[in-house]
């Protein structure tokens, strides 16, 4: 039976944490741990989820969880998996939760190494599109045009100059057993992917888009709505990579308005119509690629 709100375990394993109200990242961690169960061993690098989960003596993880070095999420996962296996323990899931900076910038070599060794780990990247924990600095997963403290919007430069790094396809290019993209706006899809990753042996990677009300400049109750809208307007997509093939899981019948999605966030408020035209064109180009190469 498909996993949904009614069938998911009622056990809460990420509870009482100090994340901002309406945090998308904490929702992703909470749901993933509910699917994996209390035998999951979580590894978290420096980032929002370790900052809000481990405020001694307030320990918000109901399962085993540990903080790793910023760059070493995947290498610590390798160690956790090898250590438990050496002790003869088989009933566990080594799972890592790293942000976009801890994955696409700082932790990329460790992740690449773990995929190369095909260690039996699940790596979940909760992507809130900037270094939110330290006060909204640009990461390589910050989209074009977004205003952060290191890519300010002024008279000459209007936010981030570079497009979002295509990490899902970079990971897939390693020939990983399983990789997927998800969004906290479509949790049924995310739960199914975590459930699927749970059964697969080898390295698994799930990239979940998790809006941050503080950094994106939206109201706290709009997190889920905006995570849906980003998929509906085509700036994010739900896909899987398995056995060398890409599969698209959700095809919007008609894209919703990109400018409506951008305009409601204060990080994009400064964008001109020309900027939005650039974003729309890059979206169309991306979907041309998806239509050609994804099933």
């Amino acid at each position: 039976m498909a996993i949904n709100a009614k069938t998911i375990s009622e056990t809460e394993l990420f509870y009482g944490h100090k994340a901002c109200a309406g945090c998308g990242g904490s929702l992703a961690v909470r749901i993933a741990l509910k699917v994996l169960g209390e035998n999951a061993v979580a590894v978290l690098p420096a980032g929002c989820m370790s900052a809000v989960g481990f405020n001694f003596p307030q320990l918000c993880f109901g399962n085993n969880a540990i903080i790793s070095t910023f760059a070493g999420t995947a290498s610590m996962l390798t160690g956790v998996e090898a250590g438990l296996r050496a002790q003869g323990i088989t009933d566990f899931h080594a799972v890592g939760f790293a942000g976009d900076g801890g994955t696409a910038d700082i932790g990329l070599q460790a992740l690449s190494g773990a995929i190369d060794r095909n260690d039996d780990i699940l790596y979940i990247c909760y992507d809130n599109e900037a270094y939110m924990n330290t006060g909204i600095q640009k990461s390589s997963l910050t989209p074009f045009g977004a205003r952060t403290t290191t890519t300010p919007a002024g008279k000459n430069i209007r936010g981030n100059l570079r497009p979002k790094k295509n990490l899902f396809e970079i990971v897939a290019a390693h020939g990983i057993p399983y990789a997927a993209t998800a969004s906290v706006g479509y949790l049924n899809d995310f739960m199914r992917k975590v459930e699927k990753a749970k059964q697969i042996k080898g390295t698994k990677y799930i990239h979940i888009l998790a809006p941050c009300p503080t950094g994106w400049g939206v109201k706290t109750d709009e997190t889920v709505e905006i995570a849906k809208e980003v998929v509906d307007c085509g700036l994010w997509y739900l896909a899987e990579y398995e056995n060398g093939d890409f599969t698209l899981n959700h095809r919007p019948k008609e894209f919703s308005d990109v400018s409506a999605y951008l305009r409601r966030q204060s990080r994009f408020k400064h964008l001109t119509d020309v900027d939005i035209e650039i974003i729309t064109r890059s979206r169309d180009k991306k979907w041309e690629f998806i239509n050609q190469n994804f099933k």
Binding site: A21, L59, G62
Partner: peptide, 15 residues
């Protein structure tokens, strides 16, 4: 290590 899920403060005051 310390016991998992040890909560000592509420978040109710944030609301």
């Amino acid at each position: 290590a310390y016991e998992a899920g040890y909560l000592v403060t509420k978040n109710a005051g944030w609301r």
